[in-house]
Amino acid sequence: MKDQQLDFEGTERRPLSEYTEKAYLDYSMYVILDRALPALGDGLKPVQRRITYAMSELGLSAASKHKKSARTVGDVIGKFHPHGDALHRIATDTLCRPAAG
């Protein structure tokens, strides 16, 4: 009784199962639709497309001079892909391999 009275906020209650199912469903669908699978159109995953696009915006092509990866990293993180830089370096790395996964 004391405990209940202490709860002045009138906090909402929700079953854990319901909350978790919804959270995990949203996460899974996001990953499936927007992260993990390459698009049919160009064979790129969203993060790869963002990197490629950012590089083309910076005028970096196969023919141009070598540039530090940090320049692209900064652009991609700031403009298109709001996640950490480590992830981005890994993605760039994967993109450079002959058979990207």
Binding site: E9, T11, E12, R13, R14, P15, L16, S17, E18, Y19
Partner: peptide, 12 residues
């Protein structure tokens, strides 16, 4: 704030 609850019946 949402409090998470479980119930024996809801198959969590």
């Amino acid at each position: 704030l949402v409090q998470l609850t479980i119930d024996a019946r809801d198959n969590t």
